[in-house]
Design a binder for these strands. Sequence first.
DNA 1: AAGAGACCCTGGATGC
DNA 2: TGCATCCAGGGTCTCT
Length: 271
Amino acid sequence: MPELPEVETVKATLENLIKGEKIQDIDILYAPIIKGDPEVFKKRLIGQTFRKFKRRGKYLIFELDDVALISHLRMEGKYFVQKRSEPIFKHTHVIFHFESLMDLRYDDTRKFGRMELRELSDEEIKGLGQEPLSDDFNEEYALKYLKNNHKQIKALLLDQSFVAGIGNIYADEILFSAKIHPEERTLKLNPKDIKKLVFFTKEILSKAIEAGGTTIRSYTSSLGVSGRFQMNLRVHTKEGQMCPVCGSKIIKKRVASRGTYLCPKCQRLKK
DNA sequence: AAGAGACCCTGGATGC
DNA sequence: TGCATCCAGGGTCTCT
């Protein structure tokens, strides 16, 4: 399940592979992936060349000559760059044919991902909070945001309008490193907690990007995107195993409607 | 305002 | 072995 580090890795990989490629034709095999009219989507993109590669939160933004293609991979979206002659996989839904006879193919087992066209002047994605690795995401911002907030802290980390790009895996890892219980109310967090939260958010996401993202479950074998950060996971998916800090058993419970892993001894609720 | 649940969707795991 | 059921969850929407 791609979160910020995985999307960043996909962005970098695709920039290497398809920058300067010109679209000759597009096959849309499963139309609901496309927001808006698929025919308009095709007409607008054919003849355009991939120029710039960006990421905002978990969204990929491809800039072409005079249009932006925004892509969200949701749970299992993947891009493959393949020769036109290669067989098409079962779950490939959109194919961009390049003049070079290479294809960019979008593959998505569960069909949750979405693509959308925007004007270059209108590529800002509404409702997204700060980029976690930017200087604008800092203690002051978090303190101010939390002032009128009563949520559970895990729900807040997953809230893209607070900070954009964190998903279920990294939320668990950040909270474990910061020694904060996922169900802790944001109101109860003190400035020290906030400081740790901001610090470990940046630290863990940066390290994950360096490692090329995290590969668990279905997130494997997509071209160029088999990360190594799963080696560094300390609580996520570790139910029943020993906490690497104190040796207690890691538990799993539902928090914010998500499977959540934590160490009940290192991450205690405040009184 | 927060939180729960439905929805989208498939494959893998589990249960009988 | 085989069939039915459950579960995973990012974003969006509805309801309480």
